[in-house]
Design a protein around this nucleic acid. Sequence first.
DNA 1: CTAGGGTTAG
Length: 767
Amino acid sequence: MLHVFGHRVWEPGSCRSNKSGFLLYLFVGSTLVDLYAKCGEIELADRVFFGMPDKNDVSWNALLNGYAQRGDGEAVLKLFSWMTECEMKFNKFTLSTVLNGCANSGNLREGKILHSLAIRSGCELDEFLGCSLVDMYSKCGATYDAQIVFSRITDPDIVTWSAMIAGLDQQGHSQEAAELFHLMRDTGVKPNQFSLATVVSAATNMGDLCFGQSIHSCIHKYGLESDNSVGNALIMMYMKSGCVQDGIRVFEAMTDRDLVSWNALLSGFLGLETCDQGLRIFYQMLVEGFKPNMYTFVGVLRSCASLLDVCFGKQVHAHIIKNSLDGNDFVGTALIDMYAKSRCLEDADVAFNRLTNRDLFTWTVIITGFAQSDQAEKAVKYLGLMLRGGIKPNEFTLASCLSGCSSVAALGNGQQLHSVAIKSGHFGDVFVASALVDMYGKCGCIEDAEAIFKGLFSRDTVSWNTIISGYSQHGQGKKALEAFRLMLDEGIVPDEITFIGVLAACSYMGLVEEGKKLFNLMCKDYGITPSIEHHACMVDVLGRAGKFNEVDIYIEEMKLSPYSLIWETVLGSCKLHGNVDFGKRAAEKLFELEPKRDSSYILLSNIFAARGRWDDVRNIRALMTTQGVKKEPGCSWVEVDGQIHVFTSQDGSHPKTREIYATLEELGQKLASIGYIPKTENVLHNIGNKEKMEHLYYHSERLALAFAFISTNPIKPIRILKNLRICGDCHDFMKLITDLTNREIVVRDIKRFHHFKRGTCSCQDHW
DNA sequence: CTAGGGTTAG
């Protein structure tokens, strides 16, 4: 129904109800089609158009334009082909509109046909048509063709310039977009709000905040700050580059904010400090009467993912269902990500299974979720399902799946991924390669890590860091320092992680002077401000070398007293050197800083026990009881045939328990015959000596070892993982076993790797 | 009856 100044001037259908053949005059019809189309009443425009007994090019163009404005490119193309079938003549207006249809449906083939039609009718370089052609080629991804058309237009106007700049930016050539913008200004064309918004988006995509700020001041000069498109682009830029306050300032200065402004604002509240603000803004926009769309939910879900409480995420999920957006792929993927990051993998899985169109991103999100929650097996299983569904992984999928394997040391799964990486052609990617090096290193196969690293075509700081820390963790300090020299020779700049690796190597090898030299190099030559971790490395360098006086001075001078990591390091050195006095001081500091941490009590007790000070050992035990400190339950795991088997101390739940205990019994007898006596002082529980022996005997790492003995190939090394430090007695036990059975054992505990071979350990008993 | 911009998961 159309009203003009309150009068009813036209009622649809009245022409059809008049069967007497009331002829609608052509110009009235065309004008009405145009009016309805422009009001967004495409159905009415359609009815009027098809009710017209005679149609001319103007009425066709009006209807085509109506569909083009809705973004329905398919319909435009269908109408156009029908128009040519009717042998209707078309003009440059038609071509321009249909090109618009090609642009928003991405139909390059049809677009090229239209281009040739334009050339034939001699209007290719018409001011409007030229612009439509540039836009069509850009939106269809044919940037080169767009540039050719653009270069042939002799005097492009601001609209054509804007279309070309936007085209370059959207196809990932933001740098060239910015350059074209400068060229435009040099030509003397004054930028308008559209070209400025585009160039702000180019600055955002390049991550060049400085350039963006210079454009901002230019915008200020033209007084275009309050324009919606400009303001929205600026908000986006500031939020994306983490300048939350600047983003808010632009938002607040805008006079009529739309949904896009709110969404742009919402996109930036990530991380612990600001995420709750994102939620507040979401509720604020609901209060102000805005109806959230998919972009809103993607933004607010990202804020929820940073919160430590899944409860808000669930509230937002309810809003999503209310707005019937739970079937949307973008929203669905963001939901999976939110649940996965909140460690609710079951909810993430439910959301994942509800989605019908799973693309690479969806799969990557769920796979990453499992990988980061120490569920490497599940991550690899989903990767397999994805491959079977015909979707190829990208470098992100592989790298995050691999890092999941690294953290739980799932070697078998990691090896499978190695072959997937080769088959899918991502082996050469630096991220994937570094993840592979790290995976092999963390699974105890430093030789494999080394082999992959040496075969790498290009190496960046991250890949060098990976191999350097790998060598360090495996006790190969010399190789770590060699690698560092090679890295510098290749001209790769070390970062703060690199220095953690090399300083750890120095402390391990007892290289005090070298450690001091590297520390100075880091501060002076590379301008890196030492973190607490770096200081802890230095304390370790001095402490392991037994230079306790220097440790004391260092802590005093660097004001390191408030940090538990420092005192934990000191305590470790005191245990190594049997330094009771300093050990007591360090432990007391730790009891004060972190009274619930069990390892400080255990370490101090071990220091006393080694000196035979049993009264002090008893006092520590009593202190633990009064403080309510409980020893964290230890657990160990091994991988057999791609399956991970977990054991706790004195565990009886494994199906092969009987054989495992029998194997341990047998090994124990053999060891006793060569003079092994269990170090019962390693047991803190207040129980009798016989029970203590039993306790030691069935520590989780020994159960894992026995299980590996009976279920794996005897020529392969056994790889065991433990969530705590390996106990002193188990360490002795492993050394003797390797001597007795001639089998290599690798144990990864929370601190480092222990390679047991022929009665010795790579850590040289300095763990 | 014709053109340009701004929001999208790892």
